[in-house]
């Protein structure tokens, strides 16, 4: 099926990003019940789920071209958003292979990969890219493999080396993150890069998650959802750019909350990589305004109830303090108290 891309959307300045009705229905809504409950919620990353966003292991949607352009803008301004320590080259190639295989298989109208031994021919019709290269020889690509394929993906990628019974974030391409910095976190161990997350350490969440991930198996990826809220459809909410997006949080009024406050959901996926034994962490970011969300009444009812029960530490950590009440008031007008159906899928 050919995706109708919206190549002219923007994620900055005039913020013309919008979700079509079809894009709204495929949104990976994260809340399965009417109260906030922390859960590691790791499940097998298999094809198929509550919405079409789960149909493929790496999801491409109508925003693909616009998001790749936004990513290029971020990288042009700050090349350190893509970094890899020298021992991660094998993991970079593993990543390129995994992504090219999946994209060309799942979206043959837009991508193709022809392999003759190590001589590979990659075509990305959506972005107008054609590349002959030698798999394993970085000199035959215009940049390192992670950057090459990362520039053609929606969502961020980090690569974790496994050693000392731990995972080390030793490479990544990170341009649409929720307030964390690759430049700062590069080289950290699992518990170190999760350091700022409140509450979960004490519950042993990261001990269990690490133990689980150290035994992650080839061909058996897993996924989980994470969420926060962002003002405007802004992809780059990095600490580096906080001076640019921080002021947005003070601009929310009852009049503009519906169009400017966005639920930001990360579909996070984890893959064991074959040649490097590293782990690929994909962080695919979806944005939806409250107005768009409210076209699915189940979702606006439930978001209203979840925001009311969110612990104060998380309100602070997710940066919602300045506008949560306004958002709750807006959502309250759209919550008639009716029961919501089980699961996250739209009614």
């Amino acid at each position: 099926m050919t995706i109708a891309f919206k190549p002219d959307e923007t994620y900055r300045d005039d913020f013309t990003f919008r979700n079509s009705p079809a894009a709204i229905r495929r949104f990976p809504f994260p809340f399965g019940e009417d109260v906030y409950r922390y859960a590691v919620n790791i499940e097998p990353h298999v094809r198929g789920g509550p919405t079409a966003a789960y149909d493929n292991l790496f999801d491409i949607d109508e925003h693909y071209i616009a998001e790749c352009r936004e990513r290029a803008l971020v990288l042009a301004h700050d090349p350190k958003r893509c970094q890899a320590l020298p021992h991660m080259m094998a993991a970079q190639w593993d990543t390129l292979e995994l992504l090219m295989e999946n994209l060309s298989t799942d979206y043959p109208e837009h991508f193709s990969l022809v392999r003759d031994g190590y001589a590979w021919h990659w075509t990305n019709r959506a972005l107008g890219i054609e590349q002959h290269f030698v798999f394993g020889d970085a000199g035959t690509l215009p940049c390192e493999p992670l950057e090459y394929i990362g520039r053609q993906m929606q969502g961020d990628l980090t690569l974790q080396d496994q050693r000392e019974d731990n995972l080390f974030m030793d490479a990544g391409m990170v341009t649409c993150q929720a307030d964390w910095s690759l430049e700062f976190d590069l080289g950290m161990k699992f518990h170190e890069w999760h350091g700022p997350v409140p509450l979960a350490h004490e519950q042993g969440v990261f001990d269990r998650a690490l133990k689980f991930l150290l035994n992650l198996q080839l061909g058996r990826p897993v996924r989980r959802l994470n969420w926060t809220m962002t003002i405007n459809p802004r992809m780059d909410t990095s600490p580096e750019q906080y001076p640019q997006w921080g002021p947005d949080r003070t601009t929310i009024t009852p009049e503009n909350v519906g169009s400017r406050v966005h639920l930001r959901v990360e579909l996070q996926s984890l893959f064991r990589l074959p040649r490097s034994n590293a782990i690929l962490f994909g962080i695919r970011c979806y944005l939806i305004s409250l107005e768009e969300l409210a076209t699915i009444p189940k979702w606006s009812r439930r978001l209203h109830r979840v925001l009311q029960t969110l612990p104060p530490e998380l309100v602070e950590y997710k940066g919602l303090s300045r506008f949560r009440d306004t958002a709750i008031a807006w959502l309250a007008q759209r919550d008639d108290g009716a029961p919501t159906s089980v699961g996250t899928a739209p009614d």
Binding site: A90, E97, P274, N277
Partner: peptide, 8 residues
């Protein structure tokens, strides 16, 4: 067959 790393 699937690719692998030394020691697998």
């Amino acid at each position: 067959l699937p690719a692998f790393s030394a020691g697998a």
